[in-house]
Design a protein around this nucleic acid. Structure first.
Lengths: 185, 185
DNA sequence: TACAACTTGTACCGATAGGTACACAACGAG
DNA sequence: CTCGTTGTGTACCTATCGGTACAAGTTGTA
């Protein structure tokens, strides 16, 4: 009867449920099914219930982006290569637009207010990291900030449009454009 | 006891509920409150329940965009002015990013599959109309299509980012950029 | 082997979900 | 003044919601 379940195994499964159904649409029944965990286990790991689950999922996403996107952008020797690799990593992470950005989904929904700081931080830290890389590419501070903002906007817009059109090529196309625009003189 | 309610009065109120809470989050209680209508009236007007309400709201949005955005783009004497006016109309419609695009919200959620054709048509007709205007500005067919796609993507992305950052200036800035990019040589 | 700490399934809770049934009130047409 | 049509409020239905309680099983440690 004992657990095989580790917290680190549960969070990604939780994340997929929230991605697929949104915060309000992710019922405990769906969550239990996706994780193969009963309410007993679920509330043992997350006494705070659904909102704690979502908060921890957001925290884990944040961690992943910190390690795989933000830090490489700021620490890389070759900023141009780091920017290009960011775009490729994003394309892989979102599976060419077939996966959706949970942070974006929450931002659009009614749950935004409950997770406002986590949502805002995610994007602002991304923007900060990308801005730093762009400055090292020779852009002025203001131009770098503007270009970084435009990049995040393109990624989120591409996710919406790709899902709306049900066509991953929309996303891939946008990522190819994005790479060019970020690295343009 | 008789109705003052006209279908045309109800739909905009319905739309705001769906925008604010998403499809799954828009409960009949919220809908009843927003429209000041009991279940009796609601199911009298919409025997198909929630899904019919959402479908008719989408249809009305489609109609509005057809009249106020798509047709002007294709019929205008001065395509450059038409494009500029589109951007301004979009800025007003979304109240500088404080209002959200219902079609985009649905596209990201689990309800997408139920409204797939309506969602896809909305964007593809928009793209078609904008492409036509851009071609009349002298762009080649392929370039015009690409630029129109990028424009829709920017609008949706700006809505997500503006809400995530809780800052309407993000949206206004994106719309100003968009106008420049659309009208660039 | 005994005991505490950790997991788990199941039963249960009140509240609310979307939806139905229906009686009644207001109207326009004759 | 009828009478069918059109709205409307209310009561009610079953299913499910998020969440709690708890007993029983599993484990590491000694």
């Amino acid at each position: 009867m004992k657990a095989i379940a580790e917290r680190s195994d549960i969070l990604p499964q939780l994340a997929e449920v929230f991605r697929a159904h949104g915060y309000e649409g992710a019922t405990l029944a769906l969550i239990g099914e996706a994780t193969s965990l009963g309410k007993g286990s679920l509330y043992h790991f997350f006494p705070g219930g659904k909102s704690q689950m979502a908060a921890e999922v957001l925290a884990e996403i944040d961690r992943w982006f910190e390690d795989n996107i933000f830090t490489p952008l700021q620490a890389a020797d070759d900023p141009a290569r780091a920017v290009a690799e960011m775009v490729e990593a994003v394309d892989r992470y979102f599976r060419s637009g077939q996966r959706v950005c949970l942070v974006g989904v929450i931002a659009l929904g009614a749950a935004r207010d409950s997770f406002a700081t986590q949502v805002r931080d995610y994007f602002s830290r991304w923007q900060t990291a990308l801005t730093a890389a762009l400055k090292r590419l020779g852009l002025g501070a203001a131009a770098a900030r503007r270009r970084a903002e435009a990049a995040l906007l393109s990624i989120q817009g591409a996710l919406v449009l790709a899902r709306a059109m049900d066509d991953p090529k929309v996303f891939s196309r946008a990522m190819a454009d994005l790479k060019k625009q970020l690295l343009a003189a």
